[in-house]
Amino acid sequence: MDRPLARAPGRGAVSNPANRYDRLRAEAVDDGWTPEGDLPVLRTELRLERPRRVITRNASPDVPFDRSINPYRGCEHGCVYCFARPSHAWLGLSPGLDFETRLVARPEAPELLAQELARASYRPRTIAIGTNTDPYQPVEAQQRIMRRLLEVLLEFRHPVGIVTRGTLIERDLDLLSEMAGLGLVRVGVSLTTLDAGLARAMEPRAPAPARRLRMIEQLAAAGVEVRAMVAPVIPALTDHEIEAILSSAARAGAVAATWVMLRLPLEVSGLFRDWLERHAPGRAERVMARLREMHGGQEYSAHWGRRMRGEGPYAQMIGQRFRVAAARLGLARELPELRVDLFRVPPRPGDQLTLF
Score class of each variant (00 low, 15 high):
residue 227 R to I: 14
residue 246 L to T: 03
residue 281 P to M: 00
residue 261 M to I: 00
residue 266 L to A: 14
residue 213 L to V: 12
residue 255 V to N: 11
residue 232 P to D: 00
residue 227 R to K: 12
residue 239 D to V: 02
residue 283 R to M: 04
residue 272 F to N: 09
residue 264 L to Q: 09
residue 292 R to N: 01
residue 206 A to R: 07
residue 205 R to V: 01
residue 220 A to W: 05
residue 258 T to M: 07
residue 172 D to G: 14
residue 205 R to C: 05
residue 260 V to E: 05
residue 191 L to W: 01
residue 288 M to Q: 12
residue 279 H to F: 07
residue 252 A to F: 04
residue 190 S to Y: 02
residue 240 H to N: 07
residue 281 P to G: 02
residue 212 R to H: 10
residue 182 L to I: 13
residue 269 S to I: 13
residue 254 A to L: 13
residue 279 H to W: 10
residue 249 A to H: 11
residue 290 R to V: 00
residue 281 P to T: 02
residue 208 A to W: 03
residue 218 Q to R: 14
residue 172 D to T: 10
residue 192 T to S: 07
residue 243 E to M: 03
residue 284 A to I: 00
residue 292 R to P: 03
residue 277 E to N: 13
residue 221 A to D: 08
residue 228 A to M: 12
residue 268 V to R: 02
residue 223 G to E: 05
residue 251 R to A: 14
residue 206 A to M: 10
residue 222 A to D: 09
residue 223 G to M: 05
residue 255 V to S: 11
residue 252 A to Y: 03
residue 192 T to C: 06
residue 282 G to K: 07
residue 252 A to D: 06
residue 241 E to D: 11
residue 250 A to W: 12
residue 231 A to P: 04
residue 280 A to C: 04
residue 193 T to A: 08
residue 223 G to S: 01
residue 241 E to P: 03
residue 221 A to P: 01
residue 209 P to N: 09
residue 273 R to D: 06
residue 273 R to Y: 10
residue 240 H to K: 10
residue 205 R to T: 03
residue 237 L to D: 00
residue 256 A to G: 06
residue 179 M to I: 15
residue 279 H to V: 02
residue 215 M to L: 07
residue 270 G to T: 07
residue 206 A to G: 04
residue 173 L to V: 05
residue 262 L to Y: 04
residue 203 E to W: 00
residue 190 S to M: 00
residue 191 L to Q: 03
residue 228 A to P: 05
residue 205 R to L: 05
residue 246 L to D: 07
residue 223 G to A: 06
residue 228 A to L: 14
residue 287 V to F: 01
residue 210 A to C: 10
residue 173 L to I: 08
residue 194 L to T: 07
residue 267 E to P: 12
residue 181 G to R: 15
residue 221 A to I: 02
residue 237 L to W: 02
residue 219 L to T: 07
